[in-house]
Write a protein that binds this DNA or RNA. Structure first.
Length: 290
DNA sequence: CCATGTCAAGGTCAC
DNA sequence: GTGACCTTGACATGG
């Protein structure tokens, strides 16, 4: 099992997701941001490997505005060396990588323009991973909207998926969300497409509520010989249901690990990031998971 | 220098 | 049909 956290490290004093306003766009701003982001990403991954955290989500802001028409920097070319360096470290330290384009990527939108922009955004994510030479990372997305007809929306998702470029397709994974598409829905899409399903245990508690063992078994089966990729969180007390915890809830986490089964990599979607990840790692080691 | 409003992109739900 | 909310840090501006 590998344990990790998404995008941001609060301890080492740099960020790999710096961006700027579209209004302030210039070639120089892009170069400055990308240079800073790649430099910091390398430092974070280095810190992670030294702390035995071997799962990390690279921020979609690593190259700001990459899929926007305004982009006019050939960043894959200009930062070739730095991108390769990251990939080298990832392979050397046996780390697993994911990326998670946000809510604007909707492969099943009714509007063709939205679908086109979504595909462009996915292409960008695949280009980052191509340039790093990381073939087996996941680009994780949700199924999308319902548009008043879930079956139709799922059909549209599948049809668009089939037309995606190969470098996107080989990395795309879908994740159950907390309101619209449950794990069962994602598994149904897997049946028709073979897309791997990332299991989010917190979302499953809010939507679907498939028993944990069954959920993990079924999601695992979608990954073939690769370990299941999982997102984990717990409810922040006193906040709207669905709010991610500020700190890891030790009791909840131990209970989860007691029930969990199989070979999986775990991403802690908890707000204090590497702090909780370090603690989770300690607990998992205590309980004999690694 | 600090406080506050704002940020590429969409969808859903309550009213 | 309109506005709040999702979710989040940090950019950017105005005082």
């Amino acid at each position: 099992m590998r344990i990790g956290y998404p995008c941001i490290n609060r301890r080492i004093g740099c960020t790999a997701n710096s961006t700027f306003r579209l209004n302030s766009y210039s070639k120089e701003r892009v170069r400055l941001a990308v240079s800073n982001n790649l430099d910091c990403l390398f430092k974070i991954l280095k810190w992670n490997s030294e702390n035995d955290l071997r799962f990390f989500r690279i921020s979609s802001d690593i190259v700001p505005f990459a899929s926007h028409p305004v982009m006019d920097v050939r960043w894959t070319h200009e930062f070739k060396k730095e991108l390769k360096l990251v990939g080298h470290l990832v392979r050397q330290e046996n780390m697993r990588i994911s990326m998670h384009p946000d809510q604007f990527v909707l492969l099943n939108a009714l509007d063709k323009g939205i679908v086109q922009r979504s595909i462009a955004e996915l292409r960008y994510h695949a280009e980052v991973l191509d340039a790093m030479g990381i073939e087996d990372a996941a680009i994780q997305i949700h199924v999308g909207g319902m548009y008043g007809n879930k079956a139709g929306a799922m059909d549209r998702f599948i049809n668009t998926y089939r037309r995606l470029p190969a470098n996107v397709k080989k990395r795309l994974a879908i994740e159950n969300d907390e309101r619209l598409y449950s794990l069962a829905d994602c598994l149904a899409i897997h049946e028709r497409t073979k897309i791997p399903v990332i299991f989010d245990s917190f979302h499953n508690e809010l939507n679907g509520r498939m028993p944990l063992k069954e959920a993990m078994n079924k999601a695992s089966a979608t990954w073939g010989r690769m370990p299941l990729m999982m997102d984990y969180s717990s409810q922040e007390k006193g906040k709207r249901p669905g709010t991610h915890a500020e700190h890891i809830d030790n009791g909840h986490f131990r209970k989860f690990l007691k029930e969990a089964k199989g070979d999986f990599d775990l991403m802690l979607e908890i707000k204090d990031k590497e702090k909780s990840a370090v603690q989770a790692l300690r607990i998992a080691k205590e309980m004999g998971w690694l």
